[in-house]
């Protein structure tokens, strides 16, 4: 398989993630879309890393995975704190502060 195939796949996944963030209103699903974006980046990095024969890209993937885990912990905690106060995770209902 060629490099382009992988890049195309990850670009498509990335765009699906971006569209998900912009179009969906449920905070959890928005968050899942963000994870999809991060993982498509991981695919790009691994593809480049294999293509270039250089290990830096794969190393970066490990960092990305670690950071994504930390972000998931914080993000879910914030969503739970909000849910306790407001009993909703719909972004359209979260509007005390004007955008």
């Amino acid at each position: 398989m060629e490099l382009q195939t992988y890049l195309l796949l990850s670009a498509v996944t990335f765009i699906i993630g971006v569209v998900g963030v912009l179009a969906r209103r449920n905070a959890i699903i928005v968050f899942m879309s963000i994870e999809l974006m991060l993982n498509s980046v991981n695919l790009t990095l691994v593809a480049f890393s294999a293509y270039l024969g250089d290990v830096t890209g794969q190393m970066l993937v490990f960092f990305v995975m670690t950071v994504a885990a930390a972000e998931a912990a914080i993000g879910l905690a914030i969503i739970i704190a909000l849910f306790r106060n407001k009993q909703t995770v719909n972004l359209d209902d979260i509007n005390i502060l004007k955008w």
């Binding site: 963000i34 980046v41 914030i78 969503i79 704190a81 407001k86 005390i96």
Partner: peptide, 21 residues
């Protein structure tokens, strides 16, 4: 506080995706 944290988090994580890409 919940609301601003959620907004900051979602948009911040969203930008992280762009940064990494």
């Amino acid at each position: 506080a919940n609301e601003s944290a959620l907004k900051y988090f979602l948009l911040g994580a969203f930008t992280t995706g762009f940064l990494l890409y």
